[in-house]
Simulated assay, not measured.
Amino acid sequence: MRFATIDFQGSTRAAIDFGSHYRITPFPDLSEALRKFDGDIMALADITEFDSVDAENVSLLAPTKTPNKIICLGLNFTDHVAEMRRDRAQYPTLFAKYPLTLTDPFASIVKPAISDAMDWEVEVGVVIGRPARYVSTQDALDHVAGYTVVNDVSFRDYQNRTGQFLQGKIFERTTPVGPWLVTRDEVDDAKDLAMTLTVNGEVMQNGRSSQMIFSIAETISYVSQILTLEPGDLISMGTPSGVGAGRTPQRFLTPGDVMESSVEGIGGLSNRIVTAGSSTR
């Protein structure tokens, strides 16, 4: 089943995708709905008394607009580790983003004038359902509400200023997410899905989620030893090879470029790079 956050009569609302139409819920986004129902995404499907809107009239937004936490993995694909000339890590390489970093699945993204190394990274996004604290790898997937697509747009010049990734990963409104939250059963827990990214129609990344070094279950278990994962939180699982910084010569995004990011069975993002002052919708 697919769920979304949509623009409805000038406000954001969590909604259920029925193919030809979306059923509106009273919640402003899926993160808030998951918190209300303690992570039970299917409880939303029981809501019947609210309005519906034709699918052709829907504007899809980032499904998790208000996660309490956004945890990201770096260097989680062997081929990406190699192209970045790094050593394979013994433990997951974690960094965080903030809700203000996220943007909508089809929004334009402003290239900041201060960076000349704007890069792309298609990733599987994991949306947490049930709270997870000290969970085992065996039980970890029971805490997942569903999956989405993330493009971890990165600013390599800022990322490489220090040994910490954060400043190159949190530029405002630069990480598109969506367009749907797809339930676990639809994609077999994202075990082996094709992941692709194109720039202006040229294939840059072409990998599979089965190539992850640390699996989704291992990552949830590991993070849950550190802190409590809560309903509506987002984990972004890292990217395969093909990023701009790993190419010879390096290639980065410029205004006018269009990125198409897709994960098999989950959906696709389309984002145009624009200059400051341009419309982002």
Rank of each mutant, 00 (worst) to 15 (best):
T48G: 09
E49R: 08
F50C: 10
D51Y: 03
S52D: 12
D54L: 13
D54H: 11
D54S: 14
A55E: 09
L60Y: 05
L60G: 08
P63L: 04
P63M: 06
K65R: 15
K65F: 01
K65E: 05
T66V: 03
L73W: 03
G74I: 04
F77I: 01
D79A: 13
H80P: 10
A82G: 00
E83Y: 10
R85F: 09
R85N: 14
R88Q: 15
A89Y: 01
Y91C: 00
F95Y: 15
A96D: 00
K97L: 07
K97T: 03
K97W: 06
K97C: 08
Y98V: 13
Y98G: 00
P99A: 08
L100V: 11
T101A: 15
L102F: 11
L102W: 03
F106Q: 06
F106L: 09
S108F: 01
S108Q: 06
V110S: 04
K111H: 07
P112V: 12
A113Y: 02
I114R: 06
I114G: 00
S115D: 11
D116R: 14
E123N: 07
G125R: 09
G125C: 08
G125H: 04
G125I: 03
G125P: 01
V126P: 03
I128M: 15
R130Q: 13
P131F: 06
A132S: 08
Y134V: 00
S136I: 03
T137P: 05
Q138F: 08
D139W: 00
H143E: 01
H143G: 05
H143T: 02
V144H: 01
T148W: 05
T148Y: 07
V149N: 00
N151E: 08
D152I: 02
V153E: 04
S154M: 06
S154L: 03
